[in-house]
Amino acid sequence: MPATFDEQRRSRVRIVDILLAILVTVGILAYILDVLALRWGLSTAYIGRSYPNYLKAAWISLYVTTIAYFIGMGIGFVLGWARSVRTLPLARVMAARRREAVAAADGGSPGAGLFLGTLLVYGIKYYVRRTADAYVAIIRGTPLFVQIVFVWSAVLVFYPRLDPLLQGLLAGVIALTANTGGYQSEIFRAGIQTVHSGQVEASRAIGLSRWGAMRYIVLPQAVRLVIPPLTNEYIGLLKASSLLAVVGSVPELTTFGRSEAFQTFHIFEAFALVVGIYLLITVPVSKVVEWIERRYRIPGLGIQASRTARV
């Protein structure tokens, strides 16, 4: 199909746009380099020499973050599910059980065992829910910094003979896992509750169990809904892992950068590298997730990518 005059003009405008953008970017970069290297005397030699050590430190950050994130995802899913379940008041459950028992016994007196069993099941469910609520309240209601110090001190008390690196890693992974678990549980709860109740009803109607309905119907839809906040959580957690600097014995990116800065006095270089590497990780992560989101978009649902103008 021949391009219309309008389309030709638009594509020409687009080329000008791109050229302009490149020019501006290069200009800004050149200016920053000029300021940093020439006027401030930033040592490119130091950066060139020691960036591999920073990358190694970044690996530790990534490692701790990723482990904590995925264990936390398991915790978050279970807690989120527990907190999303609606429960009936105990009085109504017991009343229903009583009516049922009376009907079954045909006028005879129903056994006490049945009621004890119901009470026990209800009690466990209630306890699990309240525990989950309390957990989220504690995690959300206290600073991560304090959580890390708290876990760290606990590790120091209970495992005083452990290698300091291991102590630090243990404390870091536990604190970050617990923290992200609490936040992810809210993300999952939102996702699970957003999936239409008719979806669950329909899956139960074809004979799927409660877990089957969750596994095959609710989760696949909920996960699609919560990919953006889950990505946020991963990036947030990576940045939060810099708080492990307080432990000192784990050479993650921020800790390493700080110690380099104060040992070599290449302070600007050190923090420029730290900042650069954090960006080097977080920006591609966002891009990859964007791709995943497009890949698993449900056709026909929501705003169609092809029809959406990019403003």
């Binding site: 008719g198 329909a202 109607a205 799927l208 649902l301």
Partner: peptide, 20 residues
């Protein structure tokens, strides 16, 4: 109840097809 539901099909007012 799952065993019962397998044997009695149901069609809903709002279809409730699995969206994904």
């Amino acid at each position: 109840p799952e065993w019962v539901r397998q044997q009695v099909g149901m069609v809903f007012q709002s279809f409730n097809l699995f969206a994904h």
